[in-house]
């Protein structure tokens, strides 16, 4: 395999991994605060459709990206009200959010179907972009690729090094204790849910504005669910989320290349590989219950009702 092919495979992997990384980074913060939001797919679709709508209406990609982030966050607050204020079941509410998002995005997107739009601009550095190997790997990506890595690093710092991050984790580990020492459990969780929605919105925007610049119903095609699996895969550690997203991207792209090179492995098996990888990792992680307890936020999925 020649060097040029290897480099262009890696570039494809970066593109494929970015929406997963964006959505998983947001969901990581949400889950660390003790809230499980299964509505990632729905929020991504809302981001994807509003991003396209705003880009077409304003003819400005930046407006599209911002709108997608705001729409994702706003949409996640529906879930926030249900599970945080009304204390509804988180699993059921998250699933409902995905179903609602799928339908609503289809309705909103109707006028924009079949309208092509310009791809997000790419970042090219003079001279540096032309470097062999490193040039195409480091430059020439759209802005959201850099945002995804920057946000992941920022979240890693926030969760492990900042005071507010410590509070957020405390809320996720034991909301009663956090409440007892005076932290606003509900307010912090609202913030975490909205951040998760914003990042899912950006993930959707990366799909509809950069990967495949057009709107089509249900175009995220299950990536929100992979992002959710990634969190468990990474056992709630930010840097493992980064590694996991790129590993998933790599498996997705590699299976296509294996087919193209004519290596006789059934295509159905190859298409299932990314999902199979999730199942295997989940089995390995779950085989040690203590390890899961150690990493998973203890209060995940539990409603918080302050003692009156």
């Amino acid at each position: 395999m020649s060097l040029t092919i290897t480099v262009s495979i890696l570039v494809s992997v970066i593109a494929a991994a970015t929406p997963l990384l964006l959505a998983a980074t947001g969901e990581l913060v949400t889950e660390k605060s003790g809230v499980l939001n299964l509505g990632v797919e729905g929020m991504m679709l809302m981001g994807a459709v509003t991003g396209v709508a705003a880009t077409l209406l304003t003819e400005n990609w930046f407006a599209g990206v911002v709108t997608a982030a705001v729409a994702g966050a706003a949409f996640s607050l529906i879930f926030g009200v249900l599970v945080l204020t009304l204390r509804a079941n988180q699993v059921a509410s998250g699933l409902a959010l995905t179903i609602f998002g799928t339908g609503l995005s289809a309705v909103i997107g109707t006028p924009f179907v079949g309208q092509p739009l310009a791809r997000l601009p790419v970042f090219d550095a003079p001279v540096l972009s032309d470097m062999p190997i490193l040039g195409p790997l480091l430059f020439g990506h759209d802005v959201l690729v850099y945002v995804s890595i920057g946000m992941l690093l920022a979240v890693a710092w926030f969760l492990n090094r900042s005071r507010l991050g410590l509070v957020l984790r405390a809320v996720g580990e034991s909301h009663d204790s956090a409440h007892a020492i005076g932290y606003q459990v509900i307010a912090i969780r609202y913030g975490a849910v909205a951040f998760g929605g914003m990042m899912a919105g950006l993930a959707g925007a990366h799909i509809s504005l950069a990967l495949t610049p057009f709107w089509a119903e249900n175009m995220t095609a299950g990536r929100g669910w992979i992002a959710l699996a990634l969190i468990v895969f990474a056992s709630w550690r930010p840097l493992r989320v980064l590694a996991g997203a790129y590993l998933f991207g790599a498996v997705t792209i590699a299976q296509l290349h294996v087919q193209g090179f004519g290596i006789p492995i059934p295509s159905q098996f190859l298409s299932a590989l990314p999902y199979l990888a999730t199942v295997i990792v989940l089995v390995i992680i779950s085989s040690n219950a203590a390890r899961v307890r150690l990493n998973a936020p203890a209060c995940i999925g539990k409603a918080f009702a302050p003692a009156a």
Partner: peptide, 25 residues
């Protein structure tokens, strides 16, 4: 002719990845 199967009728992201793969090859 080089064929890549996706096992789906509609998945824009994967269809794009498949096209990139075929062009790379």
């Amino acid at each position: 002719v080089k064929v890549v199967w996706l096992n789906t009728w509609f998945n824009p992201g994967q269809e794009a990845d498949a096209a990139k793969t075929l062009l790379d090859q």
